[in-house]
Design a protein around this nucleic acid. Structure first.
Lengths: 209, 209
DNA sequence: CGGTATATGATACCGATGTATCACCATGTT
DNA sequence: AACATGGTGATACATCGGTATCATATACCG
């Protein structure tokens, strides 16, 4: 065998290039050649590591999910050890808001894939719903903890609230990326909603924005 | 001049075809030829009425906005004459949920354009923000009326609530189109939120779903 | 009645894009 | 040392998509 190379690293490198292109010019501008150029490799290499364009697309999506998962884990690990559920949820949702370039690209590319999944469903569905399900599970757990700690008003329907938070967060993210709202405005909405959701007597202030 | 034809009607016809194609196969599948075939006209005709593809795209977007505007107007006109603000807002938001094929296509195509606007900003921006601004204005007015009628808790920040409702509605619509939620679940979230927003003593039930 | 501007069809062109092919290089194993 | 195999480059091919061109039919105006 020739000088053996770390395949996974190469694939990650190429996937990163795709995300950069999609984040800059849109997912429709993603072509095998554009990705190759962005990654600084030859077209043939992209073909070699991802046989077809479809595989390249789902590969990049999976890569993006993994990456964002790490981002979340890192951010949540920075929180003080016994975190109030409210602070946890605040940080969790804040991470999805397009505050810096990386999260902006994440939202943009993620939404692009979501739109893709609306029509070419089966193509991209599996890695996509996996990521979304993961977020939903974590949020549900956090809300359960909050409920167990008696921080939610009685009769709160957790599934409904989770759906609300996720939809709201996505909508806010989109409005920010579009330029319709500033990050601060989005934050105000989120903050206000959490205040209402955790409507107990002890009204704590939220976590770090 | 030859047999003079209603240009506006022709343009609307072609724009409709574009929306159908985009709603079925995705906005990336929209090509001049595909639109021509869908509209049952020659490629040349599409070129004739919309010189370039960019013009075709913004033309169709404008058409979509007009059309949805009419949908809203019709729906809101059906409400009983002195409408409670709550019922008005409920109906207003319900209209955006992807309940039937038409609203599903509206959401799908609208979101596709939104994603486009994230990168090719100037191309599609003008008609896009116009539509969004319009919704925002109507919602703001409705909330102002509610406030004037004393149906909102004191200290409600209307701008924040409007941003919340719009973002939430968009997010819910997307989750429904993706297949992540059913329309009923989305409705439950919306309903629950309106309950909370109109948290006065007289707890009225919502309008027709 | 003829002409001219409007309206529509057929088709050509060029660039981009996904995919395929062929050759070649490098290295670890026998 | 030889060779088989993993890795890489150059390039070709077919298709598709946007745009351009040429021709022509229609009907209204003078």
């Amino acid at each position: 065998m020739p000088r053996t190379v770390d395949h996974e690293e190469r694939r990650a490198h190429i996937a990163d290039a795709l995300v950069r292109v999609a984040g800059r010019d849109g997912l429709h501008a993603v072509t095998m050649r554009a990705v190759a150029t962005e990654a600084g490799v030859s077209l043939r290499l992209v073909q070699y590591y991802f046989d077809t364009k479809a595989q390249l697309m789902v590969g990049a999506l999976r890569h993006l999910e993994r990456q964002s998962h790490q981002r979340w884990a890192r951010r949540l690990a920075e929180l003080p050890d016994p975190v109030s559920p409210r602070a946890f949820i605040g940080a969790f949702l804040a991470e999805a808001l397009p505050t810096d370039e990386q999260s902006r690209v994440f939202h943009l590319v993620g939404t692009s894939y979501a739109v893709l999944a609306m029509t070419d469903s089966d193509l991209v569905e599996e890695p996509f719903v996996a990521g979304v399900d993961n977020l939903e599970r974590q949020l549900t757990d956090a809300l359960r903890r909050a409920e167990a700690a008696g921080q939610l008003p009685p009769g709160t329907d957790i599934a409904v609230e989770v759906a609300h938070l996720l939809a709201l967060n996505h909508g806010l993210g989109t409005s920010v990326v579009i330029g319709q709202r500033t990050v601060d405005e989005a934050w105000a909405v989120l903050h206000r909603h959490l205040d209402r959701l955790f409507a107990t007597d002890t009204r704590a202030t939220a976590a770090t924005p």
